[in-house]
Amino acid sequence: ELREAFRLYDKEGNGYISTDVMREILAELDETLSSEDLDAMIDEIDADGSGTVDFEEFMGVMT
């Protein structure tokens, strides 16, 4: 189920989504998050600083 959700956002099928897209997902899930909260969450999610979120990083957030 998580893989299907990931595929919805990984429109190009390249195995990752951008941190911008991940930020939008988080904002949709919790509309009360401030910009600073979102920045901090993205920094934590994208631990390797690649600017992308792969499936493993995505799973870590969603579980």
Rank of each mutant, 00 (worst) to 15 (best):
E1N: 14
E1L: 11
E1R: 11
E1H: 13
E1V: 11
L2R: 02
L2S: 02
L2A: 05
L2Y: 11
L2G: 04
L2P: 04
L2H: 05
R3D: 12
E4W: 02
E4D: 11
E4L: 05
A5N: 07
A5Y: 14
A5K: 15
A5M: 15
A5D: 06
F6K: 01
F6I: 03
F6N: 02
F6S: 01
R7H: 15
R7V: 14
R7P: 07
R7Q: 15
L8R: 14
L8P: 06
L8E: 14
L8W: 11
L8N: 14
L8A: 14
L8F: 13
Y9P: 04
Y9R: 08
Y9V: 05
D10R: 00
D10K: 00
D10N: 01
D10V: 03
K11Y: 09
E12V: 07
E12Y: 06
E12H: 08
G13W: 03
G13N: 11
G13V: 06
N14Q: 08
N14R: 12
N14K: 12
N14I: 10
N14A: 08
N14G: 04
N14M: 09
G15A: 03
G15R: 01
Y16C: 04
Y16D: 01
Y16M: 05
Y16A: 04
Y16Q: 06
I17H: 00
I17Q: 00
S18M: 06
S18D: 05
S18G: 07
T19W: 05
T19H: 04
T19Q: 03
T19G: 04
T19C: 07
T19L: 12
T19Y: 07
D20R: 08
D20Y: 05
D20S: 14
V21K: 13
V21H: 10
V21W: 03
V21E: 09
V21D: 12
M22F: 10
M22A: 05
M22D: 01
M22G: 00
M22L: 14
M22Q: 00
M22Y: 02
R23D: 01
R23S: 01
R23I: 03
R23G: 02
E24W: 11
E24S: 12
E24G: 10
E24Y: 07
E24L: 14
E24D: 11
I25W: 05
I25N: 00
I25R: 00
I25K: 02
I25Q: 01
L26T: 00
L26M: 06
L26G: 00
A27F: 09
A27L: 10
A27N: 06
A27D: 02
A27M: 12
A27K: 13
A27H: 12
E28C: 14
E28S: 14
L29Y: 12
L29T: 06
L29D: 02
L29H: 11
D30H: 13
D30G: 07
E31V: 12
E31M: 13
E31K: 14
E31N: 14
T32G: 09
T32Q: 08
T32S: 11
T32L: 07
L33E: 00
L33C: 05
L33R: 08
S34P: 03
S34W: 04
S34L: 06
S35C: 10
S35E: 14
S35Y: 08
S35K: 14
S35M: 11
S35V: 10
S35H: 11
E36M: 10
D37R: 10
L38H: 01
L38M: 06
L38G: 01
D39F: 05
A40P: 01
A40Y: 10
A40W: 07
M41V: 06
M41L: 12
M41C: 07
I42A: 01
I42T: 02
I42M: 10
D43W: 12
D43R: 15
D43G: 11
E44D: 10
I45Q: 02
I45S: 03
I45K: 01
I45V: 09
D46I: 04
D46M: 03
D46Q: 04
D46P: 01
D46L: 04
D46W: 04
A47K: 15
A47L: 11
G49A: 07
G49K: 12
S50T: 12
S50M: 09
S50Q: 05
S50D: 07
G51Q: 05
G51C: 04
G51F: 03
T52S: 08
T52W: 09
T52M: 12
T52G: 05
T52K: 12
T52D: 03
V53G: 01
V53S: 01
V53D: 00
V53T: 01
V53K: 00
V53L: 11
V53P: 00
V53Q: 01
D54A: 10
D54H: 11
D54V: 08
F55W: 11
F55L: 09
F55H: 02
F55E: 06
F55G: 01
F55Q: 03
E56P: 06
E56I: 12
E56H: 10
E57P: 02
E57T: 15
E57I: 13
E57S: 15
E57D: 12
F58A: 04
F58Y: 08
F58K: 00
F58I: 03
F58S: 00
F58C: 03
F58M: 03
F58D: 00
M59S: 10
M59H: 06
G60L: 15
G60R: 15
G60I: 15
G60P: 04
G60H: 15
V61C: 10
V61W: 14
M62A: 04
M62K: 02
M62G: 04
M62T: 03
M62L: 09
T63A: 11
T63C: 14
